[in-house]
Design a protein around this nucleic acid. Structure first.
Lengths: 243, 243
DNA sequence: GTGGTTCAATGGTCCAACCAATTTCTGCAC
DNA sequence: GTGCAGAAATTGGTTGGACCATTGAACCAC
């Protein structure tokens, strides 16, 4: 009965600051990398304490939207718009193997769907871009004997971008972040990616043939091999180095 | 009670504060809903300024880990552990019809994968939970002639939860959020969901039969019908009401 | 019990400094 | 003029103290 009674909003200074700041960014058409006004200036202009400005910026920093450099300034790290939706994902016990596999499952879901959409929507320009990345990757694979992770990633990014849905790239970027944090002190899987290599071209072929279901199937195969690699790597690690 | 709070060491104060706090939470085995020490007490115990404590707590608040109530205190909103991983996800824009379809594509990707994982991993308890939600939904569908969106959503949530990967539920919650933002002033699709109704049970049957590929296929069919419904609704809207 | 009132506790905001890292400017040597 | 070391200004980071606004509990008539 009395369900539609949300709490009333009395004071919300820092939220107001963020809204004003988002409007300012749009007004000035600021993009990633650009510097935004000093905390002191913001405090003066917005008629709030510098402390309040700092709390607001701390929130944006925690969301990865902004980077603060002491002595230098505060810089935009991503595009911000007044109507953004923030969804902090938290993974308990995220530094272990299970966390990595969790992100990989998300990646499998998105990769398969993106490949299928791509097969439907990709035009000549997108196909050319993807094939270009594929060539680069295969070349790197030949010359550097398997260490082609950067080029590999660029290929997948090209597919995501050609899917026509920006959400794919945004979500997968967050997963990639986690992936790399795991790599910092890795589990020693150095030949990672060997087994998945051939599927990149088969995916591209299915996309180029505008065959959504085929592309989806090939993408699933690719992730399956990555998953296998990681599992084997983790097993080896457990046997050889008990930490 | 608040004795396990050793002072802080060097720079990166607020980060150190968070680490210390995470350790404290674990030490005291605090769970969601419980109240954690006052800002003033934390400042005193950790030998930092109250302002620094506030910046740290602001970060946690931004990540949805904690809720502050003026005059009352600061309360845990989720389980926190020292080694958890944060992937802030911010989704840009999407207030138009294209944005709605974009979230639906993400949902298709996750729904298919979650159903497949569910078919592999769901135990007896999870299957019973899902079937219960399914019964509730079918009952609501009968008595209220189609308006079963809440129960519908609970069914899908149960599937996501039984997938064994918490990221699915979190990401899909973001999609649901965008969905609802769109529905504040909806496009008048009232009979929405009729066509997708039968597939809920077929999905459940494939999951219960531990048939991942079948579950994935049924989930894809369900989203396809939803997509069709929305497209038809949008087309009707454009014809009848040019806004 | 019901409904006020008081009062202490707590988060929210503000101010005015100072610290630490960075950038910019200055002036000297060449 | 050029180059470079050091001073000065800029900027985020931290501190301590003060006051406000809200909450919740204790208390008190009725």
């Amino acid at each position: 009965m009395t369900d539609h009674l949300p709490p009333i909003q009395t004071t919300a200074r820092d939220d107001a600051v963020l809204k004003a700041l988002a409007g300012f960014v749009r007004q000035e058409a600021l993009g990633p990398g650009e510097k935004l006004p000093t905390e002191r200036i913001l405090a003066e202009r917005l008629k709030v304490s510098r402390n309040t400005v700092r709390e607001a910026l701390t929130r944006w920093e925690g969301l990865g939207l902004v980077e603060r450099r002491q002595g230098s300034g505060t810089y935009l790290k991503a595009a911000v718009s007044p109507d953004m939706l923030h969804m902090p994902l938290t993974l308990a016990g995220g530094n272990d193997f299970a966390g990595l596999m969790a992100t990989l499952e998300i990646r499998r879901a998105l990769e398969a769907e993106a490949a299928a959409l791509c097969a439907i929507r990709a035009g000549k320009a997108e196909l050319a871009e993807i094939e270009h990345k594929l060539d680069l990757m295969e070349e790197a694979f030949q010359t550097r004997a398997g260490m082609s992770s950067d080029e590999d990633w660029e290929f997948h990014q090209a597919v995501f971008r050609a899917s026509g849905n920006p959400l794919f790239e945004q979500i997968i970027a967050a997963m990639y972040e986690m992936f790399h944090r795991f790599w910092e002190h890795p589990l020693g899987v150095r030949d990672f990616g060997h087994a998945s290599f051939p599927y990149h071209r088969t995916i591209f072929e299915r996309i180029a043939a505008h065959d959504p279901d085929g592309a989806r199937a090939e993408a699933l195969k690719l992730i399956a091999t990555v998953e296998d690699d990681l599992k084997r790597g983790a097993a080896n690690l457990k046997l050889s180095d008990r930490r």
